[in-house]
């Protein structure tokens, strides 16, 4: 990889995530809420449920998850509708819906500011909000975006993979990959090697070589561990804030 020493516009190395902040319990009327920020990108998610669902939409075997995605300004467009569907299917992978038959869980996403990696930020925020609401899940998800910068001419070639891109980096990239990963690596396989974390959701833009995608996947795996560690720390702090009645 060339130009490993050069820094990005905001001073980060290509393998560096932005600073993350997670606040929980911001919305008092929601069962759970979380605001996840990755520097300039910030998303607030409110979770309502499990709650009553009108008979027309209830599922007798499990809870019905619905996602509402509100853009920063303007009304919902086709991108927001697609994002709702992707987020809903992503959360369905971890929420233990069969525990609440005939109930409904509403996840409302409000984009506060978009400076790149928006879907990743929303997935992280939604997971944090679901945990805040006390909804049982099979595990946490960690989502991260990678941008493949256009090849530099004359700098020895080799697009480098920029982790957690800003809006500018994302728009100017040759391709971007957004992944949501499980946070528990699979058990060791038969030949003794340990498989990395599995991919729950993948969406890409732009064209890239397959090898570049697989390398991006490995980088995302490493980054997801950092994100998961941060999420756990924030969870632990939030837990202790809730006073426990004398045991």
């Amino acid at each position: 990889m060339s130009s490993q020493g050069s820094l990005r516009k905001d001073g980060r190395t290509f393998n560096q995530l932005r600073g993350m902040v997670c606040d929980r319990g911001l919305l008092h009327r929601a069962d759970g809420s979380a605001k996840w920020s990755q520097d300039g990108t910030s998303v607030l998610v409110g979770v309502y449920g499990p709650k009553n669902m009108p008979p027309k939409r209830e599922d007798p075997e499990k809870a019905v998850l619905e996602v509402l995605w509100k853009p920063k300004s303007g009304i919902q467009g086709p991108e927001e509708r697609e994002a709702e569907i992707i987020l809903r299917r992503t959360l369905e992978a971890v929420v233990l819906a069969p525990l609440f038959p005939r109930a409904g869980i509403s996840v409302v996403v409000q984009v506060i500011h978009d400076d790149g990696s928006l879907l990743s930020c929303a997935i992280n925020a939604a997971c944090a909000a679901l945990v805040d609401a006390g909804i049982p899940m099979t595990g946490l998800l960690a989502s991260v975006t990678i941008a493949l910068a256009k090849r530099d001419d004359g700098a020895g070639g080799g697009a480098h993979l920029q982790l957690d891109p800003t809006r500018e980096e994302q728009d100017g990239a040759q391709a971007t990959v957004c992944l949501a990963l499980e946070t528990t690596p699979k058990a060791a396989t038969s030949n003794g090697s340990v498989e990395g974390e599995a991919v729950v959701t993948s969406t890409t833009r732009g064209a890239m070589a397959i090898e570049e995608y697989l390398e991006a996947l490995d980088r995302c795996r490493m980054a997801s561990r950092t994100i998961n560690a941060f999420a756990r720390l924030s969870l632990d702090k939030a837990q202790r804030r809730l006073e426990l009645p004398g045991t």
Binding site: D31, G32, G49, P50, D132, A133, G134, L242, L244
Partner: peptide, 8 residues
């Protein structure tokens, strides 16, 4: 068992 605090 694990008792969650918040929740309905």
């Amino acid at each position: 068992s694990v008792r969650a605090l918040k929740g309905r």
